[in-house]
Design a binder for these strands. Structure first.
Length: 394
DNA sequence: TCTGGGGTCCTAGGACCC
DNA sequence: TCTGGGGTCCTAGGACCC
């Protein structure tokens, strides 16, 4: 089984069997069509509504069992055991795993260690080698050393492709090799970030604990079109729709943006086409999270960067310089009916929450959406849409 | 025909201030 | 021969994460 990225582009999630077939991470789907047919690989478009809902369920169970947690991503959560009354952490982790499995059917693995970086390593080991147990605990000096030796340098949290290349060229192939490196060398070649990882791996916690996610500094919505687009009207619809998503997220965060960026792009994988990347930054007169107002800015910006005669593949909107709603500075010459607008946005958000995103939208967002994403292999929203409930044939 | 999307942090260099 | 010292803010580019 594989799951594809947006627009059914690349394989971004693969079952063990798919990996065994040689399907590498981020392989474009069109390159493996034959393989898919030959081995009857099950293919799914990504379904973030479903994943988000299942994630919430899993996190909720864990939050109910551990008082201090940090949700790190859609499928990862850090647990703070430092003030824990249970001494048998291994046993507790096994119990936690069973609970999650029983209530959601989702297998999880648990890594326990003195720092976040080591815990991530232990987790990887738990997942890789201890599938039946699913828990790995590295506590003593020897256990930590063993963990470091078992971890390839490229598998360390914070070591990406570039650093991996650099380190391999210096004969550093495992985390244990890395820990033995000279401190100054690390500081010089890998900045303070590398230095932090070095300490973390030696058992000294350096990565802070964010129990509630810090407010966002930028929010971006961009998507490839399902097909190449040449008409300005289609791009206007897409840009307006992206703005609607950004503004909704701003309102959710109780934030406003002072600046906006709009960008459009041709397909760089088609060298036979004329290429263009157009982008423009717009300063808002007054910080806002109002969809209608933000769309006006965005379309004005689009007008400046759009050029006829190109085949566009993607458009995006980013809002930046984000401030909390309550610190927005009004302009001396600004007198729109802000309270009324706010009520309208609130109502639209509520309706869309109950009846599905886009149940209510602005006319300029369009209706037919010639540019919409390809999602040919979409699974159902089993857990969030009453009309897509799981059916069982008996 | 066909190649994802959304973020963060750090550094160096330039412009500016007194 | 010779041209200060101590700062801040901004941006672009590069690294990373999921």
């Amino acid at each position: 089984m594989i799951v594809l990225s947006n627009n059914d582009g690349c394989a971004v999630s693969r079952s063990e069997e798919a990996k065994a077939l040689g399907i590498a991470m981020a392989t474009p789907a069109f390159l493996i069509e034959d393989l898919i047919k030959q081995y009857d690989v099950a293919v799914f478009s990504s379904n973030y509504t479903l994943y988000g809902d299942m994630s919430e369920r899993v996190m909720k169970i864990i939050k109910g069992m551990v008082p201090r947690v940090e949700v790190y991503s859609i499928d990862e959560i850090f647990l703070d055991f430092s003030s824990f009354k249970f001494t048998d952490l291994f046993h507790f982790a096994t119990h936690l795993r069973t609970e999650v499995m029983q209530q959601t059917g989702i297998p999880v693995s648990v890594g326990i260690a003195p720092t976040k970086t080591l815990a991530k390593m232990a987790n990887k080991l738990a997942k890789k080698y201890k599938k039946e147990v699913g828990v790995h605990y590295a506590r003593t000096k020897d256990e930590i050393q063993e963990l470091l030796t078992a971890t390839a340098i490229g598998d360390v949290w914070g070591i990406g492709g570039q650093y991996e290349k650099l380190l391999l060229s210096h004969d550093v192939s495992t985390a244990a090799d890395f820990v033995r490196l000279n401190e100054e060398w690390i500081r010089k070649n890998m900045t303070v970030v590398g230095h932090r990882m070095w300490n973390e791996m030696r058992g000294i916690p350096c990565i802070k604990w964010d129990e509630q996610p810090p407010p966002k500094k930028a929010i971006c919505t961009s998507k490839s079109f399902g097909q190449l687009v040449t008409k300005k009207k289609d791009i206007e619809e897409a840009v307006a729709s992206h703005v609607a998503v950004c503004s909704k997220k701003l309102r959710q965060d109780k934030s406003c943006a002072n600046e906006m960026q709009v960008f459009i792009q041709t397909n760089p994988f088609r060298p036979e086409d004329k290429q263009l990347y157009g982008s423009i930054n717009l300063r808002l007169r007054v910080a806002s999270n109002n969809t209608q107002e933000l769309i006006k800015y965005a379309l004005r910006g689009l007008h400046h960067i759009f050029q006829d005669g190109y085949k566009y593949v993607k458009a995006g909107v980013m809002v930046l310089d984000i401030v909390p709603e309550w610190v927005t500075q009004l302009s001396l010459f600004d007198a729109p009916p802000r309270e009324k607008d706010k009520l309208l946005m609130k109502t639209i958000d509520e309706i869309n929450h109950s009846y599905g995103t886009n149940a209510v939208r602005l006319g300029v967002q369009g209706y037919h959406h010639n540019w919409r994403l390809r999602r040919q292999h979409l699974s159902k929203k089993y857990t969030t849409d009453i009309s897509e409930l799981l059916t069982i044939n008996i």
